[in-house]
């Protein structure tokens, strides 16, 4: 199951999709949108909602490639990746990844790898709609993520509008 959808993500649907009698473990990751963004100690931004945009055809192709790569690295039986597009309210799920494998450790590893890769490689972008400060497309500078392959860094290469 690989989808870009404009409706709320139903996490149970992903678990059903990866259900497999040969598997002893399912891992489901759900990424949710934050209401508050602390850019620096004096700048706390409140998000009213987010808009997600994708280069659809390429995003779906990239998600499929990532799943195929994960299946080579770990003994995954089934996988599901769903990303939301359009308007998403704070606290709602914007992305969900589920995998199933015979044993739990590889399911954890594969699910983590998939969500980290998705966030780096798949052409999807979010636009913050702040309560007070207009809108802003988010284009992180390299290394501004918190994944283990990069140094955590707060500053993002963002561009303002309005």
């Amino acid at each position: 199951m690989i989808e870009l959808i404009e409706e709320p993500i139903d996490a149970a649907r992903l678990l059903t999709a990866v259900s497999d009698p040969a598997c002893g473990g399912q891992v489901l990751f759900v990424g949710t949108t934050r209401r508050w963004t602390q850019r620096d100690p004096h700048d706390l931004l409140e998000t009213e909602y987010l808009m997600y945009e994708a280069y659809r055809e390429m995003a779906l192709g990239q998600m499929r490639s990532l799943a195929e790569e994960a299946a080579k690295r770990w003994p995954i039986k089934k996988f599901a990746m769903v990303h939301r597009l359009g308007r998403v309210e704070p606290q709602e799920a914007s992305v969900a990844v589920a995998v199933s494998s015979p044993h739990r450790s590889e399911a954890f590893e594969a699910a983590k790898w998939l969500i980290d890769q998705l966030k780096h490689e798949v052409p999807i972008w979010k636009q913050e709609h702040y309560v007070q400060n207009g809108t802003e497309w988010i284009h992180p500078s390299s290394g501004s993520c918190n994944c283990p392959t990069h140094e955590p860094k707060l500053a993002a290469n963002k561009q303002h509008s309005r």
Partner: peptide, 9 residues
């Protein structure tokens, strides 16, 4: 396609 730094997830 020009793919600026992505921010999905």
């Amino acid at each position: 396609a020009m793919i600026p730094p992505v921010s999905g997830g």
